[in-house]
Design a protein around this nucleic acid. Structure first.
Lengths: 99, 99
DNA sequence: ATTTCATATGAAATAATATTCATAAGTAGT
DNA sequence: ACTACTTATGAATATTATTTCATATGAAAT
């Protein structure tokens, strides 16, 4: 079992594609080929990026026949995304820097 | 006023030096030359990285004579760090994957 | 106005990361 | 055992980010 560092945590989150994948998995678990179809990205590219996400325990895998079903680690990801969204919105909306 | 994106948020957090700077500012606000001395890093390097942190509103500045005092945006940074720490610890300690 | 100190900035050089491509590995069916 | 299908992986290449270096800016003091 790998032990993710602070930096690896954020580095892994700092890729557009990886965040897109996480957003997708927010809806429901799905196999690799479904992710590639929806995001229109190459399979190996997606697999490499899934590996990064998995190394950080942002996602989990389960075998189902030939497929591998990836699912989100909601315990960490949901509060994280909420926190970031709050911060981003705060500094994008007028209300927040009018005070 | 710049509006940080999700990716910029995480990208900015994904640098060892920048996280070190944030950790320092967690203790107290300080000017650039104090940061450079403590971290033993070049001034311009520190300044470039402070800019990134500031663009994302992770830190704030205040002028004081020739110096510029940087301080942490604790509102976002404290809960963020706690969240990450929790996640990292969970996947580093035995208890968490024994279940 | 010029010197000094503190910090910022632009651009080239360097380092780190991601993507691509070819191929391997695993599974299920015939 | 062979084929088809799904996903993983290694290594070369391409892309992106960081650092460095030279210099600019800005504030205070003389």
């Amino acid at each position: 079992m790998k032990c993710p560092s602070y930096n690896l945590f954020f580095e892994t989150m700092s890729s557009k594609l990886r965040v897109k994948i996480l957003d997708l998995l927010m809806k429901k678990p799905m196999p690799v080929n479904e992710i590639t179809k929806i995001l229109k990205e190459e399979q190996s590219k997606v697999s490499h990026n899934l590996k990064r996400l998995h190394d950080c325990h942002f996602i989990e895998v389960e075998r189902k026949g030939k497929e591998r079903i990836y699912s989100l680690n909601k315990k960490t990801m949901v509060p994280l995304m909420k926190l970031v969204e709050k911060h981003v919105q705060c500094y994008c909306k007028k209300e927040c820097y009018k005070k």
